[in-house]
Amino acid sequence: MHIDLTGRTAIVTGSTGGIGLAIAKGLVTSGARVVVNGRRSPAVDRAVRDLSALGVGKAEGFTGDLGTAAGCAALVAAHPSCDILINNLGIFEPKDFFDTPDEDWNRFFEVNVMSGVRLSRAYLPGMKERNWGRVVFVSSESALNIPVEMIHYGFSKTAQLSVARGLAERMAGTGVTVNSVLPGPTLSEGLADMLRPEQEKTGRPLEEVAAEFVMTHRPTSIIRRAATVEEVANMVVYLSSPQASATTGASVRVDGGVLSTI
């Protein structure tokens, strides 16, 4: 399958590293013009430089905190139109329910949910008018498999599924699709940093330590390892493509079989 996104503009939120950067790379290599985003200019500049070095597509940067209404408004002002919106921005933090104050619930809602709500509200009308567009929410298997150690995170990921499904129905009859992707444990920079002390202590390969982590915390995993960021990005790029025109309103799992359901 050859995915050609030449002439399409994509915005990927939270894309200076991890899954977001892998998605940006996949879109750029498919010929798209991609706007990458982060809160710090050095990280944004580095991502743009690395993507530009691929020699295909085009990469631009936007520095701003999209976990705020002001940050979203600034992005829309700088880039008023796009064909592909990837709502990837997200935060997570293990914290017991009884130790999680209102401020944390509000912060997770603002960053994980409202960033996608605000940007979808801004960009979907243009997609509908042009009768083509793709919106993808990067959720998590934690949306369905609520982690007891961070219920507030699971809540925010479930909310994304509701928003995405509702928006898909709102765009019914148009050439605009809205979907969610549910990654499972993924060996991004965040997980790698968390596992680094164990890896350094034992001298084992990081992938082996990650696999042990997966089987301890998500023993239902069928692949029995952490996914790579590229494996998740591949699904997002497909859903962003013309080839995925009949897939909308879906929650597509890239969870390695963690969810024990058909």
Rank of each mutant, 00 (worst) to 15 (best):
D50E: 07
T228S: 13
T13K: 03
D83F: 02
A73C: 00
Q243V: 11
D99A: 11
M171H: 12
G17I: 12
I146T: 11
I86P: 02
C82H: 08
S251E: 15
R170L: 14
S115W: 05
G116N: 08
V258H: 00
L182D: 00
T63D: 01
V44H: 03
D99C: 09
N87F: 01
V178P: 13
D65G: 00
E103D: 12
G126Q: 03
T248H: 02
A43E: 12
P94N: 11
P219D: 03
N145V: 15
T247P: 08
E200W: 00
N112D: 01
F137N: 05
F108M: 09
D50G: 01
A10S: 13
D193A: 13
E207P: 04
A192R: 15
R33F: 04
V111A: 06
V48M: 02
N234F: 12
V135D: 07
I91V: 08
S221C: 04
L89D: 11
G61V: 04
T202D: 07
D255E: 05
T13L: 06
R49N: 13
S115P: 07
V254Q: 03
A77T: 14
R8E: 05
G116K: 04
P205D: 03
F155Y: 13
T202M: 05
V35P: 07
D96S: 15
G154P: 09
A24H: 00
F213R: 02
G166L: 02
P242I: 09
E198D: 15
I91M: 12
D104S: 13
I146A: 10
G175I: 07
L144D: 14
N145C: 12
V178G: 09
A143V: 04
L27D: 06
E207S: 10
G7A: 06
A78I: 06
K128Y: 02
A233Y: 06
E231H: 05
S41A: 15
K25E: 15
R40N: 13
V117D: 03
T216L: 14
G90D: 06
E208R: 00
I11R: 02
V138S: 02
H2W: 13
E93G: 15
N87W: 01
A192I: 09
E149M: 13
S142R: 05
F213D: 01
V148S: 14
R33S: 08
E60I: 02
L119G: 02
A43V: 11
G249E: 09
V163N: 00
V254R: 00
R107F: 14
K128H: 10
I86W: 06
V48C: 05
V258Q: 00
P147G: 03
P125D: 04
F155K: 11
A246E: 10
G20H: 01
V135A: 10
E129Y: 05
A24P: 03
E60R: 08
S115C: 13
S245W: 04
D99Q: 15
N112A: 07
D45M: 04
S251N: 11
S260N: 14
T68F: 05
L161C: 08
S41F: 01
A233R: 06
F92L: 13
N37I: 07
L161I: 07
T174G: 03
F97N: 07
G154N: 05
E129Q: 14
S180P: 04
A77E: 09
S140E: 00
